[in-house]
Nucleic acid binder design. Structure first.
Lengths: 231, 231
DNA sequence: CGACGCTTTGACTATACTCAACCCGTGTGG
DNA sequence: CCACACGGGTTGAGTATAGTCAAAGCGTCG
């Protein structure tokens, strides 16, 4: 690839939680194992059924992973931002990926081969720990996602999602959506039409205000909490 | 506890994927770190919000983990059988559990303290690898579960679940449910009533036959596949 | 400027949920 | 040993939520 990266540029590594505890000398050794690759918006990084032996770490940009159902409806699993990785399934389980990964913006992605990461984990046991942390965290998130979709109705899911994006102490409670409403609807397990309508209802109740397509103001935090607890 | 286990009984360990690659001498050292505890049917092993520093490994019996939604509807996340573990959230992330774990049958469960497992991982790096494998596998499963619930309608979810439980080469395609239909409905993100009705419809189409409450025969595998692909 | 994709709104419909009653099997206690 | 209670499972009727399809507005990018 034209943009291989062999000049000991650590910007890829130090921003990655998996590696950010390592010393400079250690980073130098690792850098040689890593390739950097650019993807443009809309490009697929891997697709369903593909068996890859590579771990992908986001360096710049944003990507989404999604499932494609039998009747080809896509369901967004998660949005990844710099520092996060994908590809752990084929990497650690030796199974095929069952999801798709697509660049939402132009991206720069570091790749490491399965064999190399195995070697690294032997030398630096902390890397394994970091990976375990990351996987645990993702597990927690998906479990929450599935339980919301399974038990709550759409309007409540929206409320819960918004509440989660801000801290109770935050003064200006503005949620910045890092995806389109179409993707958001998919993530919440609903349709764009329903999402649009339910957002309207929450606005009518004076709980939120839609600033633009990417920003939503929680105008009544307490009220939104009450709503999500009693419906 | 009256049933602590300090007599170098390895039956707990060798059946556990995390440890089954270790040598006998190594097992001896580890056994001392492990407590065995009995739970009776219906007992809670941990509950939402609880911060535990313990990893629980199922030795005998079966347990289920579930979420409780705001309006107190439970959603089954997974059924655990011997060899599997829970508690990794508070263990590796130092966060509170957000799920409940309950014994479905009388159980025997091995517990290891957070600090001890950390030490073990330093000495035996393979343990970390096994944990990564297990977490990856669970991640894959939950991601599939959430995508099914988000995109497929109930009848298709049932079909997909059944298809997944048997191998295409198996002659007698009988699915043994290791849970009640009530729990199954919850796992599939629906209600017992809907599950009952949809199972009836699948039976009317001659795709399956309900033998009893725990056993379902797939009488037309190909037909069931076609059904799940085109609805 | 035009095309494309996202978003919204409207009208209609269908899926699946709720509530209620009833059936059944199991386990407990008299 | 029988009676009963309990929880799981099924069936029925009615309804509500949210999905579908269609059209039109809007914003962005080439």
């Amino acid at each position: 690839m034209k943009d291989n990266n062999h000049n000991h540029d650590h910007t890829c590594l130090v921003t990655v939680p998996i590696f950010n505890h390592l010393e400079l000398e250690e980073l130098n050794q690792i850098t040689d194992l890593i390739r950097s690759k650019k993807y443009s918006k809309g490009e697929l990084i891997f697709s369903h059924g593909q068996k890859s032996d590579t771990l992908y770490i986001i360096r710049k940009g944003q990507i989404k992973t999604y499932y494609l159902s039998e009747n080809s409806k896509e369901h967004i699993l998660r949005i990844l931002t710099p520092g996060e990785f994908i590809g752990e399934l084929s990497l650690f389980l030796n199974e095929t990926n069952n999801a798709y990964a697509e660049a939402m913006t132009d991206c720069e992605i570091c790749t490491i081969k399965k064999d190399d990461i195995s070697k690294l984990m032997e030398v630096y046991p902390n890397i394994a720990l970091k990976i375990i942390n990351e996987l645990s965290s993702r597990l927690k998130n998906v479990e929450k996602q599935v339980s919301w979709i399974a038990t709550e109705q759409v309007e409540v899911r929206i409320a819960l999602y918004l509440l989660e994006q801000v801290s109770p102490t935050q003064i200006e409670k503005i949620v910045h959506l890092n995806m389109t409403k179409k993707d958001w609807a998919s993530y919440l397990g609903t349709t764009p039409e329903s999402l649009s309508r339910k957002l309207g209802l929450l606005e009518d109740k004076n709980l939120i205000r839609q600033i633009d397509n990417q920003h939503i103001l929680i105008s009544d935090y307490k009220g939104l909490e009450d709503f999500s607890n009693q419906v």
